[in-house]
Design a protein around this nucleic acid. Structure first.
Ligand SMILES: [Zn+2]
Ligand SMILES: [Zn+2]
Ligand SMILES: [Zn+2]
Ligand SMILES: [Zn+2]
Lengths: 168, 168
DNA sequence: CTCCAGGGTGTAATATTATAACAAACGTCC
DNA sequence: GGACGTTTGTTATAATATTACACCCTGGAG
């Protein structure tokens, strides 16, 4: 389960730079989405979101299941169901490059193109919207006669903290 | 194994628009890379590349293994090994959004930022380099103090053919 | 109130994607 | 030919994700 840090950066030097995000705010967004859809913001959904918000870093679904397991074991399928809701609600994103999930700090506009910057050293993710990237994508799509629907933009690299503290 | 087209576009309406790529050219690139590294361009590597080039669409590793199996069964691990080589050689890319692999038509420059346009209908992938996207990524990275190393840019949408022939 | 319908939950099973480990075969250099 | 490093074939296992189904909860119709 727990990955070997030498193999995979996630969990490398623990939660340096891991900035937990505002749990109340993101929970508010989830609750609002649920209300707007007339579906419940159930306890499992709350627990998964709270864990991701507190962690401040991407987590694998099975890792979430394990952390949420206490007396009663939480199965991965339950986590996947909660993640599905949370992604629809825009409160959680999936990192395609790592098949992991993280809580989102932002209230994204509908047409926004967001870049996920993933640190290879510490595993932290920062998000930033970019109009230039959005225009670039529209450009290549137009040139190719392609109708763009959903962009996935991930940037692997080194975050500011890791870059300044090389070996830590 | 074979996915349900209603669930997953890959394999939807077969190989409409699937433009097989120039097998000789891409094989030449692989051979050149192998020579430059002093490692062999073995038969398994050739077979995997030939299949991907002929298919012209992304394939899952296990799908490749199955198609390459004749008298002797080809195991997935053998395919993964070949894919590793082919990706290093720049002849094959991995689609992170689908965990599938496809042969590359282009000779990419070293710093190039390439966009993979994936059609949700027919599964075909087109590639295009974009300076604008590259600049956008550099921009958000700089703003965030992030050192970019490897970008992943995938655009899901509808290709020109599918867009003009909606229900086919 | 009772019944019903739609979701959500808990649980088991299974599918899909990817890697680890190791002995045998191969190729190249000496 | 022999040593050495790589590739292969094979088995096993890890990691990620979905399907199936019985049960439960809740809210509205009658
Ligand atoms: Zn976000
Ligand atoms: Zn970092
Ligand atoms: Zn390419
Ligand atoms: Zn198409």
């Amino acid at each position: 389960m727990a990955r070997d840090p030498k193999q995979n950066p996630r969990g490398g030097h623990a939660d340096l730079h891991a900035h937990a995000i505002d749990a109340d705010a993101v929970q508010g967004r989830a609750r609002a989405y649920a209300a707007s859809k007339g579906i419940p913001f159930t306890q499992m959904r709350q627990r998964v979101l709270a864990l991701l918000a507190a962690s401040g870093k991407p987590m694998a679904a099975y890792e979430i299941a394990e952390k949420l397991s206490d007396a009663r074991r939480v199965q991965a399928v339950q986590v996947y169901r909660a993640l599905e809701f949370l992604q629809e609600a825009g409160c959680v994103h999936r990192l395609a490059s790592q098949s992991s999930y993280f809580a989102c700090d932002h209230q994204h506009g509908s047409g926004e193109t967001v870049v996920f910057m993933v640190c290879s050293q510490c595993g932290a993710v920062q998000e930033a919207a970019s109009n230039l990237v959005a225009r670039g994508l529209l450009g290549v799509a137009k040139t190719s006669g392609f109708k763009p629907l959903h962009p996935i933009v991930e940037l692997e690299g080194e975050c500011a903290s890791c870059n300044s503290q090389p070996a830590r």
